[in-house]
Amino acid sequence: MSERDRFPLLVPLMSVSVIGALFASFVIGPADIPVADLFAQLLEGGDTPEALIAREIRLPRALLGALVGGVLGLAGAALQGFLRNPLAEPGIVGASAGAAFGAVVAIYFGLAAVFPLALPLLGMAGALTVVAIIYVLAGRDASVLTLILAGLALNSFAGSLTALALNMAPSPRAALEIAFWLLGSLSDRSLDHLYLAAPFIVLGSVLIFANGRALDALSLGERTAASMGINMNALRFRVVVGTAIAVGAAVSVSGAIAFVGLVVPHLIRPLVGHRPSQLLIASALGGALLLLVADIGVRLIPTYQELKLGVVTGLLGAPFFLVILLRTGRATR
């Protein structure tokens, strides 16, 4: 097929780039440690400062960057295919807002200060609560519109609860901490964060990846897809629940990271001949690459306070997105 011939090396090239970015993310940081030392210390274990930096700071940050970016790109691609709407992004199922609220609760009550993993744990709880509510509200036969509206309502409700927590913050310091966390970042995450989020991210991603053929068929509408043997209820369940679990877990450890899930599928779509199935893996790799690069960027840009990752992705993403829109014009529809 022509579109495969046009970019036959897209996925291999992107995979290599992601590995390169992972490597760069691991070796670049404020502590100036020779690359060879960093790897040697990581493999050796031990408690030298270099080993601790390698194991507890650089490694989780690089791996989380790839995972979180990948899942945002993947979920964005799946939702845009599922809703056949290029404006869809992972946040619309409500799980990210739920995760953010759960995490804010942990900060608000000072749990995060006592027990650092309380933050991602409560974030996960928030995300899963939203998933459960969507399914109870919407039922298994709900139309796509009902699901989205339920997601929207929960998004808004969780957002308001988060705002309430900010409003009622016990101290200016707590308010600042909440506000900063909401901006999204990968700094100061440990391997525990990775272990906590990874299983959910993997589970959600598997649920999403299983839908390639169904998303392709859905290009022709729900009825035609159903007539070709696609189980629409199963598809809806896998996409919505898979996204909620995976993105909820990602947001629980990283905070809200803007625009990756919206922009990446748009950038990649023309490169895969606009096929929803091919977009899944390519968009996951694109998301991982973008987030790793942005996260290296925040470390390299000299500011008196480290730029938050979510700020950078939004700042770069929005203008870039506008340029793409203007350039492609009618092709984006």
Partner: peptide
């Protein structure tokens, strides 16, 4: 029937093989 993405005709016809 409308196709929602700008697939090539051959790709769209291939969807029939779903």
């Amino acid at each position: 029937t409308q196709c929602h993405w700008p697939l090539t005709v051959e790709r769209m016809v291939m969807l029939g093989r779903t």
